[in-house]
């Protein structure tokens, strides 16, 4: 088994999902390839990390904090649901948001552009991860979530 084929089987190897033949092939390759063995060791660390992140400790004050936040609003959900801003307040809020959005957007745009040039250009491997986020519009995902599979 060559390097690239071996690497694609490593997560399954770590999880014990491979059959006997593939397990033996991966073991054989790892014993003779320093590069793949180094990556395998690193991947094991990532795998351990994923397991330790499961079932996190919940802040014991969280539920009180949340309920207090809700009580402060002192509305039942139905009252909250029916309550609306006055038209005047809403119009003023929209105007402020539009102005803030234009200036904020310009500012953020500038910062992102300058940030990319200093940090991402030097390290294409990580910047490729960051950049791919741009190619997954959230709206599309939400659309997919809300649209039953055909």
């Amino acid at each position: 088994m060559n390097c690239s084929k071996t690497r694609l089987k490593l997560l399954d190897f770590i999880d014990g999902n491979l059959d006997q033949k593939n397990t033996a092939n991966v073991e054989k390759h790892l014993s003779g390839c320093d590069v793949c063995r180094g990556f395998f060791t690193e991947l094991q660390q990532f795998n351990i990390l994923m397991h330790t992140e499961k079932k996190p400790n919940v802040n014991p004050f969280l539920s009180n904090r949340i309920v207090e936040t809700m009580v402060l609003q002192s509305d039942t959900p139905s009252q909250l649901h029916r309550r609306h801003f006055s038209k005047l307040t809403a119009a003023a809020a929209i105007a402020v948001l539009v102005v803030a959005g234009i200036f904020g957007g310009l500012e953020i745009g500038n910062r992102i552009t300058s940030g990319l040039s200093s940090s991402q250009a030097d390290h294409p491997e990580i910047s490729s991860l960051v950049n791919e986020l741009n190619h997954e519009p959230l709206e599309q995902m939400l659309f997919n979530l809300n649209t039953p599979a055909q």
Partner: peptide
């Protein structure tokens, strides 16, 4: 579903913060 949407919104908002992570990783 609500949690997924909120989490993904958070990731999108924090994207700029992730540029900072890149620097730290470097």
């Amino acid at each position: 579903r609500i949690t997924i949407t909120r989490s993904l919104n958070h990731i999108r908002r924090e994207k700029r913060h992730k540029d900072q992570i890149v620097v730290e990783t470097d």
